[in-house]
Write a protein that binds this DNA or RNA. Structure first.
Lengths: 342, 342
DNA sequence: TTGTAGGCGTTATCAG
DNA sequence: CTGATAACGCCTACAA
């Protein structure tokens, strides 16, 4: 491996001078710079960052800790967002995952510490409350798609499921729907309740009563091995004589199953029944015909902005943790329309 | 930051002795080990890997280079497979992506070199032929889900699309189908042609003629912004008077659209028409009702085994690159059945 | 503008 | 079994 000394020898200068050129320090004659540059190119010298980080005790690396394999494969976008940011900054990203095992997580923190990471993004693949198992290891940390157990103990960034769900409900109201079905997500998911509550609340404010909202549980059980009732429940819901004119689903996967149930009953989307989802999981939302009206989860931006926040924490004094909320925008497509006039 | 010297002082031994204990070298008295261990715990000492890698010129880090954002979000499983292997080995994973930009890729290789990575896994998110842009940087490298442009220039590991597609065709033949539709993937994808060729060939060997196979192009155009004809073509195919009794789709997303087309025509799956996919993209294949018969792409294992191969390359002498092929298994579910007896 | 001495945290070598 | 010493590649401090 060619080192700074080799370059120095080849260029006929001291190693410190090479160092100066590499780090663009001032006070080096144009001549010398030229000589050194050419030697660097000729020898293919690349500075050893490990050696550099020993001196500066700054590695230029940020770590990502993820927990479970995603329920929504799309949540990998969070990681992409972080990466994109890191690349734009000339930083590097170290990746580790815990599989939800606290013991494993402590190991990861040790590894991160051993690499002297500048900061850590603690990413939850589904939105939830977390308590990082970092023992007594203090590395600037930001929680992404999660909030800390003890408010203020960490900076964090989350999607605004609540607002997104309100927008969705308003959309259906504006189209004229007055009898609406709702298929709930697994109650274990933090987003599940917010989405449902926002939806219910918005309809209530518009004057709809209990009886106008037909709520069914779509999934239940431990994450990753839940039972799935969506098809059965939607079929039941749409077979009833007073069936709703619109069905809102907790996410896009559920909406897919609602489509199948509706079609199997001979109902057309959206002429006979409006179906909407949540997440804008595009593999599904764009593959469905007609394409699915849904709410976009800003996964990429959660990652990117989370990284920005982390950068601030690394640089500045870490005041008490703040929580940032990211808008979830309504994405109106062809699966929603006015109710069928029976 | 507490260093090895602090521990040495606290334990009343030399720093080398601490080093011995940390690295589990032999020839240290139980007594000393005990003393050192306790000092380490007391002080919370964690070895500085950067310093270690300076001496040993081995970082213990492997890099992952990915190209495009996946067409199939499931292909993130390749990365998970690598990670799982790395974690089992006590190695760490550095992540970078190129977005398909050769300039960017050269930068990534420089960064990897700067970190003195032990090896690199060059991962393609859709299967294709690649030519790593590593300039004159020589780090042991294995291509995953891809093959090298110049055969033998790199080790590589790929899924056996061909074999998987044969298995799928045989499955349909065994069920008794004799008139079959096929929706082709974007021809730009390497897997597209293999899947189609294997399928056609297998049917031909079974005595089916040109007229028994109705082939349609499902997608076309640059990756990520292709035009999608699946719904339209499947609808046309299944509306014909001599419609096929089974439709094979290039992947599961296409199968989803084929379902919608069939249902909209009032056809039941599988009683009226069998539909099968490819990839076993479970977010779709398990959400479809009935669940989708498909072929599983061994993404996770591509990652894991790719990492194993890399480990061999790092350790041993790098003989000329070999290509390993991973089986794609048929996953029979409820969407395939015998043809309807008209 | 340039070079020298020394040290960052670790391990290899070799002597004790 | 243990420790002194040097070295890894780089940078800080200071001197020339």
């Amino acid at each position: 491996m060619v080192s700074i000394k080799d370059v120095a020898k080849a260029a006929g200068v001291s190693d410190k001078t090479v160092s100066r050129v590499v780090n663009r320090e001032p006070n080096v004659s144009t001549d010398t710079v030229e000589k050194v540059r050419s030697a660097i190119d000729r020898l293919g010298y690349i500075p050893n960052l490990a050696a550099r980080s020993i001196r500066s005790s700054r590695s230029g690396i940020v770590g990502i800790i993820t927990d479970y394999v995603s329920t929504t494969p799309y949540s990998g976008d969070i990681v992409r967002g972080i990466q994109a940011w890191a690349e734009a900054q000339g930083r590097t990203v170290l990746l580790a995952s815990t599989n939800g095992d606290p013991h494993r997580e402590r190991e990861v923190w040790r590894t991160f510490q051993a690499h002297r990471l500048d900061g850590v993004l603690h990413v939850a693949m589904y939105r939830r409350v977390v308590e990082p198992e970092n023992g007594d290891i203090h590395i600037p940390t930001v929680l992404v798609n999660a909030r800390p157990k003890r408010a203020g103990s960490f900076h964090s960034i989350e999607p605004d499921d609540f607002g997104g769900s309100r927008a969705l409900a308003r959309h259906l109201l504006e189209l004229g729907h007055r009898r609406i079905g709702y298929i709930r997500l697994n109650p274990l998911l933090l987003g599940a309740n917010e989405r449902y509550e926002a939806f219910r609340e918005t309809l209530q404010e518009a004057g709809l009563g209990q009886a106008d909202l037909d709520v069914r549980l779509g999934m239940e059980g431990p994450i990753g091995e839940e039972e799935n009732f969506v098809f059965r429940e939607t079929t039941a819901m749409l077979s009833a004589p007073d069936r709703p004119s619109a069905v809102a689903c907790g996410n896009d996967e559920m909406a897919l199953q609602a489509y199948l149930a509706a079609l199997q009953l001979g109902l057309r989307v959206p002429q006979d029944v409006t179906i909407v989802g949540f997440d804008d999981f595009r593999t599904i939302s764009l593959a469905l015909k007609p394409e699915l009206t849904t709410v976009a989860l800003p996964y990429f931006d959660l990652g990117w902005q989370g990284a920005e926040i982390l950068d601030g924490v690394i640089a500045g004094p870490a005041e008490s943790g703040r929580n940032r909320s990211l808008e979830c925008r309504l994405v109106p497509r062809a699966s929603s329309g006015p109710p069928h006039q029976a």
